[in-house]
Computed example of a mutant assay.
Amino acid sequence: MSKIGIFFGTETGSTRLVAKKLQRQLGHEIADKPINVAKASIGDMLQYDALILGTPSYGVGDIPGRSAGCFEPNWEEFFARLDEEPDFSGKKIAFFGLGAQERYSERFCSSLFALYVMFKSFGAQIVGQWPTEGYVFEHSNAVVDGQFVGLVLDQRTQHMHTDERLERWSAMVVPQLMGTPG
């Protein structure tokens, strides 16, 4: 069985910490060490058939990067390095995103949707949708057909739920990513 690649963008380090926590939970047999997209190439991603991609939320539903207010290179700068649109046909991708539901209630974790749209346009099969129950927010672009397009975590006001949500989501998403019965 090939491993899952975990890639993340981060500004304050919270997304990196969640990516590391997720990889520890999955174990080295299932997932490789997480890689910051600021240090990754598209070729690094394309070597995997299954990916978990993480993002913080910056701007108003933008791809996180300098134009959205980030000081460090993020997803926007990763995509800017592409010479052509990559082909992710046959790849399965699950997403996780961090946001602040009370502070940014009107656009909670909307950057996750921008990342979802980008990789869907590259031909990836998206898995790992997550229910909106247990969150309090006005609007999120990341809600499609009544569910988030990936796992959503609020480290600011719901950090006490992070471990349990990661466990539940990973138990659901690993079989989807790896093509094994769940």
Rank of each mutant, 00 (worst) to 15 (best):
M45Y: 08
T10E: 05
L46V: 04
F148L: 02
W130D: 11
G99Q: 03
Q176R: 08
Q147L: 14
Q25F: 13
A40K: 04
R168L: 15
F8C: 02
A40W: 08
S140M: 05
R156E: 15
S14G: 11
P86I: 06
H139A: 14
P175W: 15
M118H: 13
T180C: 13
Q158S: 09
G99I: 04
V143S: 02
R81M: 14
Q129M: 13
S110H: 03
M1H: 15
N36Y: 15
F96K: 03
D32K: 01
P34E: 07
G27N: 07
M118V: 14
W169F: 08
P64M: 06
Q155G: 11
D163C: 07
H159T: 06
P73G: 04
P175D: 10
G128C: 07
G69D: 12
P181I: 06
F108P: 00
A31M: 05
I52F: 10
F95P: 01
G128M: 05
F113M: 12
W169Q: 03
V173G: 06
R16A: 13
T55D: 07
L151N: 04
I42L: 13
L26N: 00
M178V: 04
S2M: 15
E106H: 14
P86F: 09
T12P: 03
L51M: 13
Y116G: 00
Q125F: 10
L115G: 01
Y116H: 13
T132W: 12
L98M: 04
S67R: 14
G146P: 07
D87I: 10
F148N: 01
T12L: 11
L153P: 00
G61M: 06
I63G: 02
E167G: 10
E164Y: 12
D49A: 11
G134I: 05
I126R: 04
Y104L: 05
F122I: 07
V149H: 07
F122G: 02
G27L: 10
L51N: 03
I4P: 00
M45R: 08
D32P: 00
D49N: 15
E167M: 13
P64K: 00
A50C: 07
F78P: 00
Q129Y: 15
I93Q: 06
K21G: 11
G43N: 14
E167R: 14
G5S: 09
M45G: 03
G9I: 03
A31Y: 06
T55A: 05
R168G: 11
F96M: 03
G146I: 09
V136A: 14
Y104S: 01
S89M: 09
M178Q: 12
R24V: 07
V18T: 06
I30T: 12
M45N: 07
E72W: 15
E164P: 01
E85Y: 11
T132C: 12
V18A: 08
